[in-house]
């Protein structure tokens, strides 16, 4: 049986998801705050994908989703702030498994098209998919959502004021 111990460091601002052979692997935090995943297989080579959880504004129906939040949170009063991270990672590669394989990866600082993962230990398939993808749409949509919220508040405030004056 071949085993793999995967360590992900400096991942605080991301929510990485690891899939090995298209199966999501559970990540556990160790005492240093890094994420650790253990995997065992009879295979000698496995497919691995490390990616970040997509933003809610990165969908076709983002405004409908936002409106749902807006209504449920009573005009956005009880809403929580939206994630500002517009950087995404979609790494896909292969790992050769041995009896005891250890791979130690570090998330690099976010920069457009910069390398996302650096290997500190083990054999890592460093290919083209190992880079940050900057999604400008997310920031744009976040700004639209905020503008909508503040404009609606202004309209409500004006409405209440006019009602109080002319009632």
């Amino acid at each position: 049986m071949n085993t793999l111990q995967l360590k992900l460091r400096n991942q605080a601002s991301f929510r990485p998801i690891v899939k090995i052979d298209d199966k999501e692997i559970k990540l556990k935090k160790n005492e240093f705050g890094s994420l650790v995943a253990n995997y065992s297989s009879e295979k000698e080579k496995v497919k691995i994908s490390i990616y970040t959880l997509p933003h809610e504004f990165d969908t076709k129906y983002w405004f409908l989703i936002y409106l749902l939040y807006y209504v449920i949170s009573i005009f956005g009063i009880f809403d929580v702030p939206y994630a500002r991270n517009a950087y995404q990672l979609q790494y896909n590669g292969e790992i050769a498994l041995q009896e005891k394989t250890v791979i130690d990866l570090i998330f690099e600082n976010k920069k457009k098209d910069a390398k996302a993962l650096t290997c500190k230990e083990g054999n890592f398939d460093d290919n083209e998919s190992n880079k940050y993808i900057y999604n400008e749409k997310i920031n744009k949509r976040r700004k639209i959502a905020l503008t909508f919220k503040f404009c609606s508040w202004a309209i409500i405030a004006i409405g209440i004021t006019l009602y109080l004056i002319f009632r």
Binding site: P54, E56, V80
Partner: peptide
């Protein structure tokens, strides 16, 4: 499903605040 997970978390947070 990944975005659904995030939406669930966000709705949970809103209901938590209320």
């Amino acid at each position: 499903s990944q975005v659904k997970r995030r939406i669930m978390g966000h709705l949970g947070a809103i209901l938590f605040n209320i």
